[in-house]
């Protein structure tokens, strides 16, 4: 059956992680969000074929799963750079010159929101309030939060990020 054909596109690790989530809950399809996040953690984003594979594993249709995938902000249905920069565009950061910092960052990287740098390193995405308003303006690069961006040298911050990976 075609459904079974696509499962092998998920790695054994991915499948094991997803099955671990499934085991905790009463319905297989309830693991949809976890499964999408797991696969995204491994691959950076959720491609059409990944989506189909996850759907088959969870015994749901690609449509049902895509309805979920496209609902959430943090599930990427398009390729992203090696690192995603989530730049806070909410009110407290705005009050603390968030827009100005964003402009500088865009200039530095040569990309606007929704774009990926030519070298494929970064994708820049706006994010609602990161809950660090006392340290505004802020952004996340990958898993790391960076605060007080108004007073910092963005270029060396990014170099630093690149080095500690």
């Amino acid at each position: 059956m075609t459904d079974l054909d696509v499962i092998p596109t998920l790695s054994p690790e991915e499948i094991a992680e997803i099955e671990h989530e499934v085991a905790l809950i009463p319905r297989r399809d309830s693991a949809a969000i976890d499964a999408l996040m797991i696969v995204q953690r491994h691959r950076g984003w959720v491609s059409d074929s990944s989506l189909k594979a996850i759907a088959a594993l969870l015994e749901m249709s690609p449509e049902e799963l895509d309805g979920i995938a496209t609902f959430y902000n943090l599930i990427y249905r398009q390729p992203v750079g090696e690192q995603v920069i989530l730049f806070c565009d909410s009110v407290s950061c705005w009050l603390r010159n968030g827009d100005g910092v964003k402009e500088k960052l865009s200039e530095l990287l040569g990309i606007d929101y929704g774009q990926t740098t030519a070298d494929g390193r970064y994708t820049l995405i706006p994010v609602p309030c990161l809950g660090a308003c006392d340290r505004a303006p802020v952004m996340m690069v990958g898993d790391d939060l960076h605060t007080h961006l108004d007073d910092c040298d963005l270029a060396s911050l990014l170099t630093c990020e690149a080095n500690h990976d």
Binding site: M60, P62, E63, D66, G67, T70, F71
Partner: peptide, 9 residues
């Protein structure tokens, strides 16, 4: 049916 869904938000 399973192949028609609400997508996006």
């Amino acid at each position: 049916g399973t192949d028609l869904a609400a997508l996006g938000s």
